[in-house]
Simulated scan of single mutants.
Amino acid sequence: MATTTTTISSSLITPPPLTHRTRTYCRCLLPPAAGLSLWARRRRPAVVVVASSAAVLEAPEEVAARKLYVGNIPRTVTNDELAAMFAEHGTVERAEVMYDKYTNRSRRFGFVTMSTPEEANAAIESLNETEVGGRKIKVNVTESFLPNIDRSAPEPEPVFVDSQYKVYVGNLAKSVTTEMLKNFFSEKGEVLSATVSRIPGTSKSKGYGFVTFSSEKEVEAAVSTFNNAELEGQPIRVNKA
Rank of each mutant, 00 (worst) to 15 (best):
S115C: 09
K136R: 14
A95H: 02
Y102D: 09
S214K: 15
E220R: 07
V97P: 02
K240W: 12
T24M: 13
E220S: 08
E119C: 02
D100G: 06
I13D: 07
F145A: 02
L181C: 03
F111W: 03
N228A: 14
A54W: 11
A153E: 14
D80W: 06
E62Q: 10
V63S: 03
A123T: 00
A194Y: 00
V77R: 03
G207P: 01
F145C: 04
E220T: 13
R198G: 12
S214M: 13
N121V: 01
T22K: 14
A83N: 06
A173R: 08
L146A: 14
S197K: 13
R44L: 09
K136E: 09
M98P: 08
P117M: 00
V196P: 00
F109G: 00
A34G: 08
D80I: 09
L36P: 01
S37T: 15
A65Y: 00
R23S: 10
E93Y: 02
V161I: 14
R21S: 15
L68Q: 05
N72A: 09
E232Q: 08
S186Q: 04
V191W: 04
F160L: 01
S215F: 04
E157M: 11
T5S: 10
A87I: 05
V196E: 01
V191L: 04
A241F: 05
N239P: 04
R23C: 12
S224Y: 11
R107K: 11
A194T: 00
T91H: 05
E58D: 10
E155H: 10
L30T: 09
Y102A: 14
L30A: 13
V77H: 01
A2P: 15
H89R: 03
I73H: 11
S53N: 10
A173V: 04
K204H: 12
L12C: 11
D80R: 12
E118H: 00
I73G: 03
Y25P: 13
V223W: 11
E179S: 15
E125I: 04
S197T: 09
T78L: 06
L30P: 07
R66P: 02
R151F: 15
V223N: 08
P235L: 05
S37R: 15
P156F: 06
A55E: 12
T113I: 07
P31W: 09
S115R: 04
P74Y: 05
E129C: 09
P156N: 06
V47K: 11
E62I: 05
W39P: 12
R21Q: 15
K174M: 14
P158A: 03
S224D: 14
Y168P: 02
T130A: 06
P74D: 03
V112L: 03
F213M: 08
H89N: 05
V167E: 02
G71R: 02
E58K: 08
T76P: 03
E216L: 10
F111L: 02
A40E: 14
Y165I: 02
N228M: 13
F184W: 01
M98W: 06
I137W: 01
E157K: 08
T7Q: 11
